[in-house]
Design a protein around this nucleic acid. Structure first.
Length: 773
DNA sequence: CGGCCCCGCGTTTTT
DNA sequence: CGCGGGGCCG
């Protein structure tokens, strides 16, 4: 077994696994077995006797962390659980909760998501009487974010002539002021935004050297995945933490750096060898994913970029087919020809839909494609921008939960103080906010203070309603202490009136979906509680605080993969990073779309767009098809565009032309090389055979580990009336059980599931069925 | 206070 | 075209 350990790794991979001491940069091209190297490297460390809690492995997505943890567990077993492995944000949120006191934070701090931050900025802009058109929240927020990423405090911002001048030039001279108020408000509310989760560790290390030293000693080995995507704050954290032992391993691919608009700095990977003088550089250049054609074509594209680490990706696979081009007149036609091609692929080559992906530059492009796939009865799955956790009804319930844990969370309070409607309108809320601002207090404090200190602006009915609301929240706070997260959440959903409100609106499809989403959220909380309990590392209740600190950093990108439901995957190129598919369609290769219009004036932005295209191309394992349309519906009008310059970047020997293009029917595509042409692939769509299920799913997916399958299980769910003690029942997850008792109100039942334990189930969601003999 | 309508605006988005 | 926010009216 010991000897087998490194078997199946190529020399470069092996070197990367074994170079455990000292700084090390692993330049890992697309499909080069990067996760494998990281996994083995960690296993190797543990074989050398390093304890799992001395290793910190940082990723950018929960998904990547989860995948790696599972793979490591396969090699080293249970001890993988003690690794510090996760996203930058979740690892440092955990550390910040431990160090809260030193930083003047509350350890039950809330985490503001982007929407919370936006609302807060909008609110501040309004309060300052500034023009919201000049101070658009995303604009302002990206300035604030930039400042935080670069560790620039509000005071330092105001005193930085360069920053001030930039703002003056853009006629946004008040940004420093908004930033300052924004920070103060977050602090008051005991809330950290995403950037704070990276900023505060830096503050901790700066102001409390003994804590820095502590963590330097603790984390003897640090690994960072996707290093090309680190921003300055993350870079500083890694830099400082590794300063004692110098055991830092950065893994990444500069060619796949596509998040500069979020503050990622490609320089961090490009300069790594300057920053860590004695570092080893290992290049993983063999691509195990794609055909020679695809790898070579991708190389020819990326070669057009100036800024990069020189490397030669190569494939030992088949030559494979040349890249297919589809030239369409309109986006509509493009979509139908892609659908037709997918249909052929499935029928002639019997490939699975799950092995097919359609990638686009912008989410808006999915519409036409959806229509075409639906009409062709091709099942598809859209990785939508709007995640489950961003839906209003889900955020509303989460806001109640946040309040129960941290009532000073002003954004949460603002969100639900009048939902369901309890007669506290905008004006009252505004007056409350003014009073709060005058006293430099949170909304919650101000409400609690109302009996002693009522602002003259608030009328007594409004005050009464606010106090009632406060009592509701206090009651939840008290309850919460005794209950697990699921029980607490369910109580809150009931007591707040949310469930009643949603039920009353569930007579149409939309309303029903909202209700179901909330039920789904409750289910997922239950699943979370159960899972944590089954892991056994939580002895007593898994409370709301625990749950909330996790949920804030989760997106449903992390949950299930569409591969298991055999659907064509549709997503933006950005979301496709890290994934692979046998058959890939990249659509919309047109100027002003891909590359995007904003990138055209700036070389480095254009290089990033090219890297984005490189990412798209390298998702394909076996066959790549690229399409573009002469004109498309954009913002309600037809616009025409030239084929993308990136098509010209592909070495023509790897391209096979669409018949129609080769015939010269297409005008304005002189930039695209002609090539030997083949039989036409753009046959018109006929009505397609329809024994496939056209069950397209979209958006609105349940979170991971949810019981979503329960709803589709056979047999009607049992109601309280049908249940009696000792009755045998079936549960989708716990299996067969025996009813012990039903609660008086008929809402809950206690069921003994034998080895799975005795569970208190809420009948409405438990979906119990009679155990058939 | 709350609902409805109209206007403005519109990349990408791991956390 | 489709969404969200602000304004206006009941």
């Amino acid at each position: 077994m010991e000897d087998d350990f490194l078997e199946g790794l190529n020399p470069a991979q092996r070197e990367a696994v074994l170079a455990t001491e000292g700084p090390c940069l692993v330049v890992a091209g697309a499909g080069s077995g990067k996760t494998r190297v990281l996994t083995y490297r960690i296993a190797q460390l543990m074989r050398q006797g390093v304890k799992p809690w001395q290793i910190m492995a940082l990723t950018f997505t929960n998904k990547a962390a989860k995948e790696m943890r599972e793979r490591i567990a396969n090699v080293v077993g249970d001890s993988a659980r003690s690794l510090w492995m996760g996203t930058f944000h979740s690892m440092f949120a955990k550390i910040l909760r431990q160090e809260a006191e030193l930083l003047g934070l509350n350890n039950n701090f809330s985490i503001y998501d982007t929407t919370d931050s936006q609302t807060l900025v909008r609110q501040i802009v309004k309060e300052l009487g500034l023009d919201p058109k000049v101070y658009k929240e995303n604009n302002v927020l990206s300035r604030i974010s930039m400042a935080k990423n670069n560790l620039v405090s509000p005071a330092a911002y105001a005193n930085d002539p360069a920053l001030v001048k930039e703002d003056m030039d853009r006629k946004q001279s008040e940004i420093y002021n908004i930033y300052s108020i924004y920070s103060a408000r977050c602090r008051q509310a005991s809330a950290l935004d995403f950037d704070d989760l990276l900023l505060y560790p830096n503050i901790l290390f700066r102001d409390h050297p003994e804590r820095l030293q502590h963590y330097q000693q603790k984390f003897r080995y640090i690994l960072v995945d996707e290093f090309q995507d680190t921003n300055h704050a993350q870079y500083r954290i890694v830099r400082q933490l590794s300063d004692a032992h110098h055991n830092v391993c950065a893994v990444g691919d500069d060619a796949q750096s596509i998040y500069s608009f979020r503050g990622a700095e490609i320089q961090n990977i490009l300069n790594f060898k300057k920053d860590y003088k004695e570092c080893k550089i290992i290049k993983l250049e063999r691509n195990y994913r794609s055909t020679k054609t695809i790898v070579n074509a991708a190389n020819s594209v990326i070669a057009k970029n100036e800024k990069q680490i020189k490397k030669v990706a190569f494939s030992e696979g088949d030559d494979g087919e040349r890249i297919k081009l589809i030239a369409a007149y309109t986006d509509h036609e493009e979509a139908f020809r892609v659908a037709s091609s997918i249909h052929d692929l499935s029928r002639r080559e019997h490939c699975k839909f799950a092995d097919i992906a359609i990638l686009y530059r912008t989410n808006a492009q999915s519409r036409a494609l959806e229509e075409a796939l639906r009409k062709s009865n091709i099942p598809y799955y859209i990785y939508s921008g709007l995640s489950f956790y961003q839906r209003k009804e889900v955020k509303d319930l989460l806001a109640y939960l946040r309040l129960a844990v941290n009532p000073n969370d002003d954004e949460a309070l603002r969100r639900v103080i009048n939902y369901p409607a309890r007669g506290i309108g905008d004006t009252s809320l505004q007056h409350l906010q003014e009073a709060a601002n005058a006293a430099s207090q949170t909304l919650w404090h101000t409400i609690e203070d109302l009996p002693v200190n009522p602002p003259t602006t608030l009328k007594s009915p409004a005050i009464k309603k606010m106090l009632e609301f406060a009592e509701l929240i206090r009651a939840q706070q008290r309850e919460t202490l005794k209950l697990d997260a699921y029980e607490a959440a369910y109580k809150i959903a009931l007591a707040s009136g949310m469930l009643a409100e949603l039920r009353s609106e569930s007579n149409n499809n939309e309303g029903l979906t909202r209700l179901q989403n909330v039920e789904e959220l409750l289910n997922s909380i239950k699943a979370y509680v159960d899972q944590r309990r089954s892991e056994g590392d939580i002895d007593d209740t898994v409370g709301l605080t625990e749950y909330l600190s996790n949920v804030a950093l989760i997106t449903d990108m992390d949950s299930d993969d569409p591969k298991k439901s055999d659907c064509v995957s549709m997503m933006t190129v950005h979301s496709s990073k890290g994934l692979e598919f046998d058959y890939v369609y990249i659509v919309g290769l047109e100027e002003n779309l891909f590359p995007s219009p904003r990138s055209l004036t700036d070389t480095s932005a254009l290089e990033e767009e090219r890297r984005l295209f490189y990412v798209a191309v390298t998702r394909a394992a076996r066959r790549l098809t690229i399409s573009f349309a002469q004109s498309r519906m954009q913002w309600g009008e037809m616009r025409s565009n030239q084929p993308s310059r990136f098509l010209k970047d592909i070495d023509p020997q790897y391209i096979e032309m669409d018949a129609r293009m080769a015939d010269g029917l297409h005008r304005g595509n002189q930039q695209v090389h002609s090539a030997r042409h083949q039989a036409p692939s753009g046959r018109p769509l006929r009505s397609l055979s329809s024994n496939m299920r056209g069950a397209s799913q979209q958006g609105n997916r349940p979170p991971a580990n949810s019981y979503s399958s329960a709803r589709y299980a056979a047999g009607p769910a049992l109601t309280a009336k049908q249940l009696h003690a000792n009755m045998a029942v079936l549960h989708d997850r716990f299996g067969q059980g025996r009813v012990l008792s039903v609660s008086d109100d008929g809402q809950m039942a206690q069921v003994d599931f034998g080895s799975a334990g005795i569970k208190n189930l809420v009948l409405k969601f438990a979906n119990l069925r009679a155990a058939g003999q």
